[in-house]
Write a protein that binds this DNA or RNA. Structure first.
Length: 442
RNA sequence: GUGGCUGUAGCUCAGUUGGUUAGAGCAUCGGAUUGUGGUUCCGAGGGUCGCCGGUUCAAGUCCGGUUAGCCACCCCA
């Protein structure tokens, strides 16, 4: 027998049902915030990704040369496609643009916990708004998504940071522009590496500044409140122009935190400059969501990327957005006992004798036509007992019994397979009766 | 890319210092059960013991390689 490729998953019905329920709640939650869906190609030009992340990422992509000689790649993330699509129509679109996508992404890496080679992501982005109103709504929407699964502040939290703060810090330290990426990745590693190892790694790029940077960065990363950030800013050694810019940024911080508070996000958001995110294209506020009771991969991550669309050749377009993966999210929901399931609908099983078959089949057609789920046995001349057994095994909620007694009165017996209770219903009223059944599901 | 652990039925797993024809539970299928299911009982099907090679009279068991899965590292969209 063939097996699935490494890192690719089969979804048998039990898993498929959960997966669809996940997508449904994603969709409902983000649409409630006014986002509309879009999609793009799964296969894109390899250069689209190289443009954004550099040649070295090629080794992590599923890429090949197509029969037309084009270098192409399966999409590893949605943002470049979004940037390309939005960029080409940006001038004609009413702002803000609020789009979401649920789609498969591919990454050729070694599979492990929370990571596969094909994963589904929810991407939620706001384009065309420079102000922090967009950042606030982006974060609020992320929280809406978590809450749509019944998760609370006991289950998850969001760490909020700002790359601009780090830029001011690097101004004060005197870090050269072309070394700033290294400093950011050093900050990203601070939680995992000790001082000696990190300082020695960082000193290869910034020389003897490394020790000062590490110690100052540790201070900033340890600040978790707005007043602390402002006080930290006051102590920075900056030029008058930079001072004005920092003051303006702190005002934006204040606005953002205020908006998040008013939107009911305070219980979930914690200021945490230690988050910087690995991607090169982020420019401002960045955030990541984590489980609260367990160490795990980030459940979602995002931030502002104001330069990406322009870099891809489009007009300058402000942007903020985030992505959430299906693998880590389902893992989290299972841990929290909140695995989603689709709404329970009545599932009917037709039970009939051979001579009642024509009448029964007419109702099968009619009920299916009105949207009911209707099953029946393929077995010929099976007794009512056999058919009811099959009904139970199929997970049906109700059996519709077409017996000669019932049909003589123009009725059928509707039997609730959960409680065992039964009642007669006129054939003509079946669809309405079924529609009125209220099944309590999870 | 590096390392650790693990591969026996659809699933979860037994399988003794190497020794007849590799087992159990669950699941599946059939029957008991021809107008009322779930329970119970009986029966059946289902295996290249991941794969290749080696040692041995003899390998599911020991050795080497390989492959896959899980986990950690690396890296992170």
């Amino acid at each position: 027998m063939f097996e699935s490729l490494p890192g690719f998953r089969d979804f048998y019905p039990e898993d498929y049902e959960v997966r669809q329920a996940l997508f449904q709640r994603w969709k409902n939650a983000v649409e409630s915030a006014g986002f509309v869906g879009y999609d793009g190609p799964v296969l894109e030009s390899l250069d689209l990704y190289i443009e954004k992340s550099g040649e070295e990422i090629v080794e992590q992509l599923f890429h090949f040369v197509d029969k037309g000689g084009r270098r192409v790649a399966l999409r590893p993330e949605m943002t470049p496609t979004l940037g390309r699509m939005a960029g080409s129509k940006a001038n004609g679109m009413r702002k803000p643009v609020k789009w979401y996508n649920i789609g498969d992404h591919f990454r050729f890496e070694r599979p492990q916990k929370g990571r596969t080679r094909c994963f589904t992501q929810l991407n939620v982005d706001i384009l065309g708004e420079a102000g922090v109103a967009a950042d606030a709504e982006s974060i609020h929407t992320l929280i809406l998504v978590f809450r749509a699964f019944g998760l609370t502040g006991e289950d998850f939290y969001i760490r909020l940071s700002d790359r601009e703060l780090w830029s001011f810090a690097m101004d004060a330290w005197g870090v050269a522009v072309d070394q700033r990426g290294h400093v950011l990745s050093a900050i990203d590693k601070m939680e995992r590496m000790d001082r000696d190892a990190l300082v020695s790694w960082l000193s290869e790029h910034v020389g003897e500044l490394a020790g000062v940077i590490y110690d100052d960065a540790k201070v900033l990363a340890g600040i978790h409140d707005l007043d602390g950030l402002i006080a930290w800013g006051h102590a920075l050694d900056l030029s008058p122009e930079q001072r004005n810019a920092l003051d303006a940024r702190m005002a934006e911080w204040r606005t953002l935190i205020g908006a998040l508070k008013d939107l009911g996000c305070s219980d979930y958001v914690v200021i945490d400059p230690g988050i910087v995110r690995g991607l090169a294209y982020y420019t401002g506020f960045v955030f990541e969501a984590f489980e609260k009771r367990r160490k795990s991969r980030a459940l979602a991550g995002g931030g502002r990327y104001d330069n990406l669309v322009g870099k891809l050749g489009g007009p300058d377009l402000h942007a903020v957005g985030w992505a959430m993966g299906d693998v880590t999210m389902l893992d989290c929901l299972e841990f929290c006992g909140k695995t989603p399931h689709e709404a329970v609908r009545p599932k009917l099983f037709m039970v009939f004798g051979d001579s009642e078959r024509p009448v029964c089949f007419a109702d099968v057609d009619a009920l299916r036509g009105s949207g009911c789920r209707v099953l029946y046995s393929y077995r010929a001349n099976a007794g009512f007992g056999k058919q009811l057994k099959e009904a139970s095994q199929c997970g049906c909620s109700h059996a519709l019994i077409y017996g000669s007694d019932e049909l003589a009165d123009g009725e059928v017996t509707v039997k609730d397979l959960g409680s065992g209770s039964a009642r007669r219903v006129k054939r003509g009223e079946l669809a309405a009766f079924i529609a009125a059944l209220d099944l309590k599901g999870s």
